[in-house]
Design a protein around this nucleic acid. Structure first.
Length: 946
DNA sequence: GGGCTCACG
DNA sequence: GACGTACGTGAGCCCG
């Protein structure tokens, strides 16, 4: 039916429904897995009642439920504090949002949300279109912001009071008719949405003024005529703020509409779909009630998995667990045509979630070609969709011909794109960053800008949030530990070493078993982990520190950093020449030729042939020849060790940096694309690999020059921002050390302050070596100080180092108390925690021997290093929104530093915005007692910027 | 593939 | 009384 006169559109404010349901009902969880579903239950009840009551002459002909998509909208551009003081969403509500979308679809009602727009704007736009078409509109909401839309065929219905709101009710509420509501709101402001308005003016006064002057503009123009001095002054002084407030409260009637009015026509309910959803949610009463009203038989309730029989109940084996359902490779399906794929897409939509895994030709996401996609909707029900398998074994004589029986890649991806991007369908992955990057790189008809996987969950990150420190988080490890299952090893398909082939050469039949199994494993892990996140109390960590990082890092990695090959190549040559010279000298001094790069040969030369003192053999029987040993020998005047030190430095720079980096320059982008591992480090730090861009030299002059090869593109600059002393600041906060906190607040040199306190010397004119010792102690404290370690670091006798430590603890007793408390906590709980709730397990804390020492120091360090890692993660996650619209890209993270590439004329703006985000990154979760300070620099290359 | 060495925070 | 120790990473090289 074409929407026209006589039609009646209902627009339901979905978010309001959810919040009302959440607060009206006691917390309720799904029995089988503990997922919170209380708000979903209430939401479904309301939808059911709505559908049941929508009858009679006044019934709706068209209906939609409108949701808010994200918190960032154009209003944040107008005013960055808009809705800034909204409290954080309750943890047990967040996971219910996608389910309410599913619920809406299950009721066969259009479900609408648009990125960057508030539900109110979408409602306004549909209301306007419907009004223009001559139809009637009822907005089902009690949000007063929507009252500006009332009139001329548009009404509101307050679902709480079941009260109709027309023009007269708006007048009653605001003192003006709908068309002047925004004027009143602009003056009165709104504390809930953080709209400032005119200070001291409420709705009453605002209405009075507007009625007197006619409208807001006239009022502001003639504000000087207002008799009351205070009101006059407020209006004159805050006119701009008031105008801005008006722009904030004014609804946008021209948002892009994802569905036409006609598409909102009421559909008869689909009993099967609805029953299936309600049954999955395990809403017994509601399922029955809905079944009765639809006149269908209620479905058999889903059995909690725990009560199903298990196949691997072998005597003497590991005890059978609920998730140990057998893996049956024969049941996996191969998707070879559009009809089959369409069937799978239906199955995915019915559930609202799907486990996804991509198979490609390479582990390097920037080079990998997509070969196939596997999908899994419930344990054991998985499929593989091959799209680019090729004939032959991949050797020199193999053809590049695609195998028969595959869907064209373009067709398959065009069909999958709406699913992968559907806000109501959760995509579940194991290491989703990999798959997201692969999908983002796909190009074709209908997906010219790639495919953006949203929303997603990641089982690897769930494992990391819950079990960091206990084990690694790769699929094989997790499958083995939590599913008691060993997936088919990839090596059995590809082989290893020189003879290894690529996945596109794997016969499709074999690929199905392997690939579908991975999706199956992922889905089962997700079912297991999802409720556990709550039990382990790391949902906030997962949701705020892990999951959002995937998209942020994917963008950084794909952006890459421009590296100048010529610069590196010239440096390589220069290093090679110098090394050759040094090598000749070294051989001369040694009295013969040997491999300078072999620590074993070098040790023999130094201590056996030349008879130098201090040769110490390690556990492997070889002499130690580390830099510290060679430095000691060189200090004694030995020339050979001094030359070897120089040679080693050059060798390192050449092989690891100037040579290896060149091989990482991407042939098409000309840039270097590192890969960040979110779960690589136990403390919450991220790790960079292939290549590691977190250890580019900086400490020596010669090494630092390598950073000159990291350059900005023409017309751009590199900008580096780094946290100053972030770990010591965190220590000052968590250990609660007044002297340290004050020093940071006052901006005093922290190492000098430490020295001054320990050695009773004045800050002014301090001996640099005294400061250096204090600095070493400060670092030592973060690492879980020991006399031995400090002695080695400072090259002083151990007793002296121990005396320093004793003095330090005597002066800052809180530090020792903090350390003792942290170790005690670790011993009791088996983990330590950061300020932000990240858990780092310390399984070896109760060991004996040297292991205990390691574990103890790691436990002391983890909360400090981890909190610093959490803070920069928070900054990175907020950064895209903060720099949106700027010609700037975030490229690299180096633990306490972020590197950006930005257009020349936007350097200052970027620094201002990025610094603001970084310095406020702990807020509002943690109120630090010390300020976070960020230093910034910029230049044509990384050496200049740092 | 383990051990050593060394680059970074 | 001796043991061996600063925390967290990744990569290249040697050598068995």
């Amino acid at each position: 039916m074409t929407f026209s006169k006589g039609c009646h559109l209902h627009l339901i404010d979905g978010s309001a429904f959810i919040f009302r349901a959440y607060h009206a009902l006691p917390p309720l969880t799904r029995k089988s897995d503990g997922i919170p579903v209380g708000a979903v239950a209430g939401f479904c009840n309301m939808l059911f009642r709505y559908v049941a009551n929508n009858s009679g002459a006044d019934a709706a002909t068209h209906v939609a439920v409108i949701f808010d998509f994200s918190s960032k909208t154009f209003r944040n551009e107008i005013y960055d504090q808009y809705k800034a003081n909204r409290p954080e969403l309750p943890e047990d509500l967040k996971p219910q949002f996608p389910l309410t979308r599913e619920a809406t679809r299950a009721f066969n009602i259009a479900c609408i949300e648009t990125d960057g727009y508030e539900a109110d704007d979408i409602i306004a736009s549909y209301a306007c279109r419907a009004r223009e078409a001559g139809g009637r509109v009822t907005i089902i909401s009690s949000d007063k912001d929507l009252m500006q839309l009332v009139g001329d065929g548009v009404e509101m219905l307050d679902p709480m009071k079941n009260k109709r709101i027309g023009r007269d009710e708006v007048l009653e509420k605001f003192g003006v008719y709908p068309e002047r509501v925004v004027d009143v709101q602009a003056l009165a402001g709104d504390s809930v949405d953080n709209v400032p308005g005119a200070p001291g003016i409420g709705i009453k006064t605002a209405a009075l003024l507007i009625n007197e002057f006619g409208d807001l503009e006239t009022l502001l123009e003639r504000a000087s005529e207002i008799p009351q001095p205070k009101r006059r002054q407020v209006l004159l002084e805050h006119s701009e703020q008031i105008r801005m407030s008006k722009r904030l409260v004014e609804l946008d009637c021209d948002t892009p509409l994802t569905e036409t009015l006609d598409e909102l026509e009421i559909q008869p309910s689909d009993p099967e779909k609805l029953m299936h959803f309600l049954n999955l949610m395990e809403f017994r009463t509601l399922t029955k009630r809905v079944a009765d009203s639809l006149g269908v038989a209620p479905p058999v309730p889903v059995e909690p998995i725990a009560s199903l029989p298990h196949a691997e109940d072998t005597p003497g084996g590991t005890p059978p667990e609920p998730e140990r359902l057998p893996f049956d490779h024969a049941r996996y399906e191969c998707i070879r045509d559009a009809a089959t794929l369409a069937r799978w897409i239906d199955a995915i939509q019915a559930r609202g979630h799907v486990a996804v895994d991509t198979e490609t030709t390479s582990l390097d996401e920037m080079q990998a070609d997509l070969v196939g996609i596997s999908l899994c909707v419930e344990p054991g029900r998985a499929a593989y969709l091959p799209i680019c398998h090729r004939e032959g074994g991949g050797d020199l004589f193999a053809s590049d011909k695609l195998c028969d029986g595959q869907m064209p890649a373009e067709q398959a991806l065009a069909m999958l794109k709406p699913v992968l991007e559907d806000p109501a369908i959760l995509k579940i992955g194991q290491n989703m960053k990999y798959d997201a990057k692969i999908f983002a790189r796909q190009r074709g008809e209908g997906y010219a800008d790639g495919i953006v996987v949203e929303p997603y969950d990641d089982t690897m990150l769930m494992s990391y949030a819950m079990y960091s420190g206990l084990h690694n988080h790769g699929m094989d490890e997790l499958a083995d530990r939590y599913l008691g299952h060993t997936p088919i090893p990839i090596k059995s398909l590809l082989g290893s070493g020189k003879g290894a082939t690529t996945f596109d050469r794997v016969p499709i039949d074999e690929a199905v078993k392997y690939a579908a199994e991975d999706a199956d494993v992922t889905l089962r892990l997700w079912q297991l982990f999802k409720p556990k996140l709550h039990q382990v109390q790391v949902t906030t960590v997962y949701e705020t520190l892990e999951r959002p990082l995937v998209a942020v890092l994917a963008r950084m990695e794909m952006a890459g950093v421009l590296v100048d090959r010529d610069t590196l190549s010239r440096m390589s040559n220069a290093f090679a020449q110098k090394m050759a010279g040094l090598e000749a000298e070294i051989h001369e001094l040694a009295g013969g030729s040997f491999n300078v790069g072999s620590p074993k040969q070098l040790g023999e030369i130094l201590f056996d042939r030349l008879g130098l003192p201090g040769g110490v053999k390690g556990k492997t029987g070889a002499y130690a020849t580390g830099a510290d040993v060679l430095e000691d020998l060189a200090a004694e005047g030995a020339e050979l060790p001094a030359r070897v030190l120089d040679w080693r430095q050059l060798s390192k720079l050449k092989s690891t940096y100037t040579d290896a980096l060149q091989t990482h320059i991407h042939p098409e982008t000309g840039r270097v694309h590192t890969s960040y591992s979110i779960t690589g480090a136990n403390t919450g730090r991220i790790a960079s690999t292939d290549p590691n861009l977190q250890n580019i030299p900086v400490r020596t002059e010669e090494g630092r020059r390598i950073r000159e090869a990291f350059v900005a593109a023409p017309g751009k600059r590199l900008v580096s921002l780094d946290y100053s002393q972030i770990e010591l600041r965190i220590l000052a906060h968590v250990a609660d050390i007044p002297a340290l906190k004050e020093a940071f607040r006052e901006g005093i040199d922290i190492h000098a302050m430490t020295a001054s306190q320990m050695f009773n010397v004045p800050l002014e004119g301090m001996d640099p070596s005294v400061r250096r010792q204090a600095k070493a102690i400060n670092f030592g404290v973060i690492y879980g100080i020991s006399g031995f370690g400090l002695a080695r670091n400072l090259r002083i006798p151990r007793a002296e180092a121990q005396a320093f430590i004793d003095t330090y603890f005597a002066r800052f007793p809180g530090i020792r108390e903090y350390m003792d408390a942290t170790v005690a906590y670790a011993k009791e709980h088996g983990f330590v925690q950061t300020l932000f709730g990240r858990k780092i397990h310390t399984p070896e804390i109760n060991s004996r021997g040297p292991t205990a020492g390691f574990a103890r120091r790691a436990a002391i360090n983890a909360p400090i290093q981890g909190a610093a890692a959490d803070i920069i993660r928070r900054a990175m996650i907020r950064m895209p929104a903060a720099i949106e619209g700027l010609p700037a890209k975030m490229l690299l993270q180096v633990h306490d530093e972020l590197l950006f590439e930005v257009a020349e004329d936007a350097v200052d703006t970027l620094i201002t915005r990025a610094r603001e985000v970084m310095e406020a990154a702990a807020d509002p979760a943690v109120r630090l007692d010390v300020p976070l300070v960020v230093d910034a620099g910029h230049g044509m290359n990384w050496a200049e910027a740092h």
